[in-house]
């Protein structure tokens, strides 16, 4: 059964209205996002900062209320799931800043076992602690970490604790919100490999949010590229990396640093010209038109729909043809 199905999701933040009496205005961040996720699969969500990927991730778990559209969890609308609080053990999240995600006043055992108080209220304190130690061991931290405090950890260790906390309730889905972008490159690989191991062991589905295409390549089965709150391309991994179809995806791909300095030299000057449009005043046409090298008049006046340009490959561009 499909684990997660998202239909035409819109998310926005409330901002204070102009006057005291008028209600709050909604600042739209994510527009019309739809996708499905099967158990054990990973969806990589990529885009530049401010494109709404983190907002989308939080809205999937209803940490932010969506303004329109539906999120179906195993076929059930999240908005109407009774006792969603208990069901949250099935869907967890890990964060970008691993240290800020841990309460500095609590020991690691308490941090990790805390969700069990909600999910399995019958558990004794001792059993909860044992589960926490077990979860810590699963992410590669020995039992003597249990009584330490977050400020004693390195970033990589802190991120492992974040993963352990997500795992302790035996989830089916983990939203990974830029889980490695705050870590050293060498630690990034460790954390990603850990996530992939856990996925294999526990059949986890992951939504992996990142701005770095190189990181996502390793872990994802499918990719979704977002620009200014809209999905511009959605494709399986291999064909996407072989040839991205949307000009925005191509630009992102070119932004991945080249490890070989001799080849890197020739790439200088590929930075995108043009301005990122304002979220408050989005352009009528394509969200990428102001920076797109291929933009025509049509792009500035009419928004391209996300359409299937090849089997399994969706792109929102007027000028993209089948590869």
């Amino acid at each position: 059964m499909t684990l997660l199905e998202v239909r035409n999701l819109d998310v926005g933040y409330k901002v204070p209205g102009g006057s005291l009496l008028s209600g709050p205005r909604v600042l739209p961040i994510v527009h019309d996002v739809s996708f499905t996720l099967e158990p054990g699969r990973t969806l990589g969500v990529v885009g530049e900062s401010g494109c709404g990927k983190s907002t989308l991730g939080r809205a999937l778990l209803r940490l932010i209320e969506p303004t329109a559209g539906q999120v179906l969890w195993q076929g059930q609308d999240m908005a109407t799931i009774p006792n969603l609080r208990q069901r949250r053990s099935e869907m967890q999240i890990i964060f970008q800043d691993p240290v800020a995600a841990l309460d500095p006043c609590m020991t690691l055992a308490r941090i990790v076992s805390r969700p069990l108080a909600t999910f399995e209220p019958g558990l004794s304190r001792r059993e909860a602690r044992e589960r926490a130690v077990e979860a810590l061991r699963l992410v590669g931290l020995s039992a003597d970490f249990a009584d330490r405090y977050p400020h004693e950890l390195s970033g990589g260790q802190a991120q492992r604790v974040g993963i352990a906390r997500a795992l302790v309730g035996k989830p089916k889905l983990i939203i990974c919100d830029e889980p490695v972008s705050a870590l050293d490159v060498s630690i990034q690989a460790q954390v990603i490999n850990l996530l992939m191991d856990l996925q294999e062991k526990m059949g986890l589905a992951l939504v992996f949010i990142s701005h770095n295409l190189a990181v996502v390549r390793h872990i994802s089965h499918d990719l979704m590229v977002m620009c200014l709150g809209r999905v511009v391309e959605h494709a399986p991994r291999s064909p996407f990396y072989a040839r991205p179809l949307h000009p925005y995806s191509q630009a992102l791909m070119q932004a991945v640093p080249e490890p070989d300095p001799r080849r890197e030299k020739g790439r200088i000057g590929t930075a995108l010209p043009g301005e990122l449009p304002s979220v408050l005043n989005p352009p009528p046409g394509c969200v990428f038109a102001s920076r797109c090298p291929k933009a025509a008049d049509l792009c500035r006046s009419t928004r391209p729909e996300l359409r299937e340009v090849a089997p399994g490959r969706l792109a929102a561009c007027h000028f993209t043809d089948a590869p």
Partner: peptide
């Protein structure tokens, strides 16, 4: 802070 969001994701009231 993110640990408060984590607590909400952990079902805390």
């Amino acid at each position: 802070r993110e640990f408060v969001q984590a607590a909400r994701a952990g079902g805390m009231t």
